[in-house]
């Protein structure tokens, strides 16, 4: 199968100034390469500070990578602007309370990517918005609501709808489940799996909870200090971890389960 996304030697480093002349280069993540097939889910795990969030941000264009290429269907996206990129790859942020504009109606939040990237008429856009809302388990009436009227689980559904509305090939989710409580979390996981099955979308999940990762992902990347230390099919990696970092992550979370 041809991969929908192939990342080649992508890296990001910051330059930090100390005083007037001395500079220090800080690496967010070293050159990384991986591929993702259509309809599959890739999980990126690692400790905090391992560069997994930076990698997710570089993929969607929030930060510009220092080097390397991001190819979607063979087209390099790294040098494209947001407009060309957002129809292919979309991002869901960690905290739904800050990722939705508190002064915009849900309908307008969802309509804004359509307005900027498609040539649809007003009615067609309304239909697309209400379709997207129903797809994530909300009602058409929610388009009139403001974000403060929704619970955080509902807000995260709106964020998912915003990612879905342009019918992208890949959705990058940066720890979307971290701020939700357990019951809402499992609802959202099921929703994501349903959407993925229906539309054949590839997901990249930045996650911490290995139980969820095992449940939803096909491939896994373990990162440590900006490097990929282990990668492969999720079941294999988690059942038989080779690298000490992976073993440590697993051990850490098993201790949590036992308590």
């Amino acid at each position: 199968m041809i991969p929908v996304l192939s990342v080649n030697k992508l890296s990001k480093s910051y330059v930090q100034h100390h005083g007037l002349f001395s500079k220090k280069s800080i690496t967010a993540f070293a050159p990384v390469s991986f591929e993702l097939e259509q309809g599959k889910t890739l999980a990126i795990v690692g400790e905090s500070g391992s560069g997994k969030s930076s990698l997710a941000k570089a993929l969607t264009g929030v930060i510009t990578p220092s080097s390397g290429s991001i190819c979607i269907d063979g087209i390099n996206m790294a040098d494209k602007d947001h407009k060309q990129r957002c129809c292919q790859i979309r991002m869901i942020f960690q905290d739904p309370t800050t990722s939705l504009n508190p002064r915009s109606q849900i309908g307008r939040i969802l309509k804004s990517p359509l307005l900027l990237n498609t040539e649809l008429s007003e009615q067609e856009m309304d239909i697309r918005v209400s379709d997207a809302l129903r797809q994530v388990g909300l009602l058409t009436e929610h388009a009139q609501f403001y974000p403060r009227m929704l619970s955080s689980g509902q807000k995260q559904r709106v964020a998912l709808a915003r990612a879905l509305i342009l019918k992208p090939k890949i959705i990058v989710a940066d720890e979307v489940l971290a701020t939700l409580d357990v019951s809402v979390r499992s609802q959202l996981i099921n929703l994501i799996l349903d959407v993925q099955r229906e539309q054949n979308i590839s997901f990249i999940m930045v996650a911490y909870n290995l139980g969820i990762v095992r449940h939803i992902s096909d491939e896994i990347i373990v990162m440590h200090e900006g490097h990929i230390v282990e990668s492969g099919p999720t079941a294999e990696v988690l059942d038989n971890p080779q690298h000490t970092i992976t073993q440590r992550l697993l051990m850490n979370q098993q201790v949590q389960f036992r308590k």
Binding site: T60, G61, V62, D81, H82, K83, R85, C86, R90, M91, F93, D95, T98, S99, L100, N101, P102, S112, P113, L116, N117, R162
Partner: peptide
């Protein structure tokens, strides 16, 4: 620097918008 502005920028919005 807020996330909803980043989200808007990712949608391809112009600075004016």
């Amino acid at each position: 620097n807020k996330e909803y502005i980043i989200a808007l920028r990712l949608d391809g919005a112009t600075p004016l918008r």
